[in-house]
Design a protein around this nucleic acid. Structure first.
Lengths: 217, 217
DNA sequence: TAGATTGTTAATCGATTAACAATC
DNA sequence: TAGATTGTTAATCGATTAACAATC
């Protein structure tokens, strides 16, 4: 086992491999080679082997990887063997969608704290979770040692809330606010900006349409 | 102007630059250097200049970039000068959140077609858009020449619906279904898997916690 | 003109892929 | 054992950064 620093993309691919292993296991397959696994994603087999080798030797030469064993190891590496409490800030449409998203709970992520700025929402119960004021973020998260937060609020208050999350000891934030926010290096920030994603897609649409127009001439 | 093929990341950064230019313009700033712009994102100034230079010469030596001019150019490049009709497949929580997300409309993306599998939803109106059956995807999108689709359905039917979108002539898909889907090369697919994002974050949380434990010893 | 900053080339860095000895 | 596939090193590729002539 090496101990080099691990590329971000490797970690992302691990959970993609894992999703595939789950499907394979459901199909009753017991082992798979890096070549077969790679083909399912259009990746290179050496990349699969290298990604896995960062964390240990999980394969069997001449055979490949035992699915149950590899799956167990990936879950352990990704921390999916434990339950994670997650704080959700912003209970609008997106926040509600995320709260109800089954994929989270299935993977051991439980949203057990909800915050909103709107006094009309504070105090309401969502399933068995009470919506609390954003003012209480630091005290509540500190006491309950919650380490992961999802940010689903408008751009305006995003940096201020982020600073509170950081002060509360959170070390991973999934940000859906459409704005640039900054965190200290010890905190892992992952931003998803819907508008940026769509804009990137529209760039490709423009190009496709122009190509079509050229071809029609 | 060069005509090399443009890295995906460059296109993504363009819309990030654009967001910043909008803020600057609102603040009454009229020009900015690549150095100042880069510092706002923790990027390198050469990268900013290089990203922009893929599309033309927008700067003024000795001065920097005129904000109004650069903003105009980026909007043109990203296709934001035109309105885009967008089809939304799946009107559950996430679909509803996306439909109501203001950021889309502000950037010229209008969801003008909604599809759902649930017969109870088909026929309902959402604002002025009627929910249609997923069976009608091909005929409706073809007729209305809709080029961009957002997929917000469970994993199960995702590939089948994608095939229909492709058959209907869509050339860009933003996919929120938690599964691997494949498209022909002419179609641009951008996938956002919430669970994968959270798993990546939890990996970092595990590491942070272990580091804390070591330090406590 | 002098100072500043672009656009672009060359150097560096990091990630992907090929190749192959080790070994099941 | 013979065939297959891993784990890992070396080669390649692509993206980022440094450097600097061009020029406002």
């Amino acid at each position: 086992m090496k101990s080099a620093k691990i590329p971000e993309r490797t970690v992302t691919r691990l959970s993609i491999y894992l999703r595939c292993l789950e499907e394979l296991e459901a199909d009753g397959v017991t082992s798979i080679s890096s070549k077969e696994l790679a083909e399912r994603f259009g990746l290179n087999s050496a990349q699969v082997r290298k990604d896995l080798a960062y964390f240990g030797q999980f394969g069997v030469r001449g055979l490949g990887y035992y699915i149950a064993d590899l799956k167990h190891n990936l879950e352990r590496i990704l921390g999916l063997k434990q339950e994670w409490e997650v704080a959700l800030v912003g209970m609008g449409n997106l926040g509600t969608a995320l709260f109800n998203y089954r994929g989270f709970r299935e993977k051991g992520f439980r949203i057990t704290a909800i915050f909103d700025r709107d006094p009309a929402k504070v105090g309401q119960m969502v399933d068995d979770v009470e919506i609390r004021s954003v003012e209480d973020i630091v005290s509540i998260l500190r006491r309950r040692k919650i380490r992961i937060a999802v940010l689903a609020i408008p751009a305006a208050g995003a940096q201020r809330v982020t600073d509170q999350l950081v002060a509360a000891g959170v070390n991973a934030i999934l940000n859906f606010s459409p704005t640039q926010i900054s965190v200290p290096p010890r905190v892992k920030l992952q931003s998803v900006d819907m508008a940026v994603l769509l804009k990137t897609l529209s760039y490709h649409s423009v190009r496709s349409d122009r190509r079509l127009q050229r071809e029609e001439r």
